[in-house]
């Protein structure tokens, strides 16, 4: 799931301020916490109030999209409204906002959210934690299933850094466990300190996601998909 956070209401309002008729689109995809029809309605009400305090009238409609990051779904759901509204406010993650801007290209779509990372639902934790940063070259087979790229504040391949105290990371005021101490504990438990001792060479940043110079081919190309649809 993609962990997101609503932007400050003033920041959202500043983006849509030039428009008087907006479409607010929730997303039923993998946004966490959920940002669906209800959330879109609440946001509409808040923005309407905010506009009223400035002596303006804001007309809005709330809808929700199954997945804004899927071009066909986004287009079929939203295009029917695109003529009527001056702008779209999206409650999806950044991917959804980008896709909406692509498929509905007669008006602009603005983000209502900040997107953070791909996260997990873990009921034993009070926070969403970034366990994987999608580095493109997974090494957690060598690190006991604990990721040092997402989990270590210095992204070390050969940690720990020496800054940890009582197993806690120097970043964040010693409140988070040092990923490399966790890795050591895991590998020790399974009698695999051979993996801990192993030297890992420099990372190939061409495999990383940002900036986006990486293309992953789909197993089916669009042409093949279209052919199949015709059959």
């Amino acid at each position: 799931m993609i962990i997101t956070e609503l932007k400050d209401i003033n920041e959202i309002y500043e983006q849509i301020k030039p428009y008087s008729k907006i479409l607010i689109a929730g997303c039923d995809g993998c946004c966490q916490p959920p940002r669906s029809l209800n959330e879109a309605k609440v946001l509409g009400q808040l923005l309407e109030l905010k506009a009223r305090t400035e002596g303006k009238k804001l007309i809005w409609k709330a809808i929700t999209v199954l997945r804004q990051c899927d071009d066909r779904i986004a287009a079929t759901t939203c295009r029917p409204f695109a003529e009527e509204y001056e702008a779209i406010l999206s409650l999806a993650c950044g991917l959804g906002v980008v896709m909406m801007n692509k498929v509905i290209d007669n008006i602009l779509t603005f983000p209502a959210q900040n997107s953070h990372f791909g996260g997990v639902q873990n009921s034993s934790e009070n926070f969403y934690i970034e366990y994987c940063e999608a580095c493109g070259d997974c090494i957690i087979g060598e690190t006991g299933g604990v990721c040092p790229r997402a989990g270590c504040a210095k992204h070390l391949s050969n940690g720990p850094c020496g800054g940890m105290v009582d197993g806690m990371c120097e970043v964040g005021g010693y409140t988070k466990p040092c990923a490399w101490v966790d890795i050591w504990k895991r590998l020790k438990k399974f009698n695999r300190l051979d993996l801990f001792k192993k030297y890992r060479g420099p990372r190939d940043f061409r495999l990383s996601t940002s900036p986006g110079y990486k293309d992953i081919y789909k197993e089916y190309t669009n042409e093949e998909e279209k052919k199949e649809e015709k059959v």
Partner: peptide
């Protein structure tokens, strides 16, 4: 390795850590 930028007086800076200190030794 160096103390993390988050501890310093420019804590909004991007910390680099392209290679780690062991890799720098190899280099």
């Amino acid at each position: 390795t160096g103390d993390h930028t988050a501890l310093g007086d420019h804590n909004r800076a991007r910390a680099v850590y392209d290679i780690d200190s062991t890799q720098f030794c190899e280099m």
